[in-house]
Design a protein around this nucleic acid. Structure first.
Lengths: 140, 140
DNA sequence: GTCTTGTTTCGACATCCGTCGATACAGCGA
DNA sequence: TCGCTGTATCGACGGATGTCGAAACAAGAC
């Protein structure tokens, strides 16, 4: 239920960088596909889980390592991990008693490159149309 | 209600790149702050709106340019634009009869750099702990 | 086989979110 | 001033989402 017409980046090919959304309008299907990934990142618990997994030694973490730092119940953690997994952001594997999760870097890279502004990763606030002044303040 | 202890990137300083979430676990407050931005991106209509604005000539677009391509009503578009604005992803300004929106590149760059994997933008599927085989398949 | 521990699934519940039509507000032009 | 067009806000509604406790499932230990 996705990637119908555009090659989904970062599956097993190297990530073809990128057609950032700044360059051309996103198609409906691409937007729906990407929105699912961003939705998976739109919860603080999941964001911390992902970060906890990614920064864990060895690049992977057992569920038992992940339940401690949070105030929510263990089934809730399991639910969030499932959301991350179904979004294609992490992989998982059972090894004996424990289940391990790891981040799929290609998925993160796909999102990262999408959001890149033409100027580069850390833009010097590049200025699309002489709008630099507004860029800082932001009308409201 | 955010950035209490960590310097929020991409405000008016150049974006200090980045402490990606892969490097160290996200704090609770940083996660809550970032989750709001990702939530703004978690809807297909908003994603397309953002892309439409960013790719519009001059780097900005009038609301009247944005209602056409969508099947949803004008109030709904207005609502989504408000969400994007309150998330700090776009700026807006009224000019006479029309209201213009433009993307705030620093905000996108902040998210982009957060998601970057250590290997770079388009990672060669860098392999945290000899888990390359799994990285491709993804257990389920 | 049975117990124990680690993890997921199942229902249930309250809240949030996207959408709409109706309406209000802002500028411009006649 | 009045009317017109463009945009935002309001209130309502239905569906999605985060959370929980209870229970089921998986694997190893006794």
């Amino acid at each position: 239920m996705s990637n119908l017409e555009l090659p989904v980046l970062g599956q097993d090919d190297a990530v073809a960088c990128c057609s950032p959304m700044v360059r051309e309008p996103l198609g409906e299907e691409a937007a729906a596909d990407l929105a699912k990934m961003f939705k998976a990142l739109s919860d603080p618990v999941r964001l911390r889980l992902l970060s906890l997994i990614a920064s864990h030694e060895g690049g992977e973490a057992c569920v038992c390592d992940l339940t401690g730092p949070f105030d929510v119940s263990q089934p809730t953690i399991s639910h969030h991990l499932k959301v991350l997994r179904e979004a294609g952001l992490v992989g998982s594997e059972r090894r004996g008693t424990w289940v391990y999760y790891w981040v799929l870097p290609a998925a993160l890279a796909r999102l990262s490159s999408l959001l890149q502004t033409p100027g580069g990763t850390a833009p010097s606030l590049q200025d699309p149309a002489g709008t630099a002044a507004r860029t800082a303040g932001g009308a409201r």
